[in-house]
Design a protein around this nucleic acid. Structure first.
Lengths: 112, 112
DNA sequence: CGTGCATATGCATATACGTGCATACGACGG
DNA sequence: CCGTCGTATGCACGTATATGCATATGCACG
């Protein structure tokens, strides 16, 4: 895995933004209301998140609608799998197989 | 989840240390050889990792043997589960159930 | 076109943090 | 005891980075 993914998420404000976006796509101003910092800051964080692959933008009139992208989360999930043996022992194989199936399926389905 | 976990991992040197420790317990000097910074820095990082719950120490003569602890990884894994729906859709429930079973097995969790 | 709303960017600042150096602390062997 | 090896800590420094303010850019509508 790559530390950049972690560094991107490690900032409290960006983390919050990501969590809000988990609830669905949002315009910049909607995010500003939830994060307690100035709008310029939010825009800059969104830039960073975009460059790191966490979010994508869709213009809607004068607004810009941001939403999450799966890749970095997937990467993180794949990485942490290597550490599952720390708390599993017996279920390890089972989990790995599940993981394999998920990756194999690769069904794309957008959200509820 | 809590950002501290991410912040702790977000430093390249600490990340490296964690990855090395995935291979098993190590004394401080063993780690120093692998991370390209001064020994004092490594000790400092180990302190941070300890306080964040990532590692534990075991004295061995004059040496100190560090090893990984599962909790923060578990926490991270639990958090990322919320985002699995970004790339899965149907297997989500299955994964959750597996997760539940894992948690049920090891019900032991409190610390300093 | 000009006005207003939504978002991005340049500049300046403060603060946090990783790092090295020197040194202190602790354990063990002679 | 005394010295040495292994590790932790105080101090000083440089740098990265998050933030606010002011302003630029972009888009819609009258």
């Amino acid at each position: 895995m790559h530390v950049d993914v972690l560094q991107t998420l490690a900032d409290p404000t960006r983390f919050r933004i990501v969590e809000v976006l988990r609830g669905g796509e949002r315009a910049v101003n909607d995010l500003v209301e939830q994060v307690a910092i100035h709008q310029s800051g939010v825009s800059r964080h969104l830039r960073i998140l975009t460059e790191a692959g966490f979010v994508q933008v869709r213009p809607d009139g004068p607004k810009r609608i941001y939403s999450l992208r799966p890749e970095p989360f997937r990467e993180l999930d794949a990485w942490i799998t290597q550490y599952r043996r720390l708390w599993e022992a017996r279920l390890d194989r089972f989990a790995e197989e599940l993981d394999r199936r998920q990756h194999a399926r690769k069904r794309k389905e957008t959200e509820p």
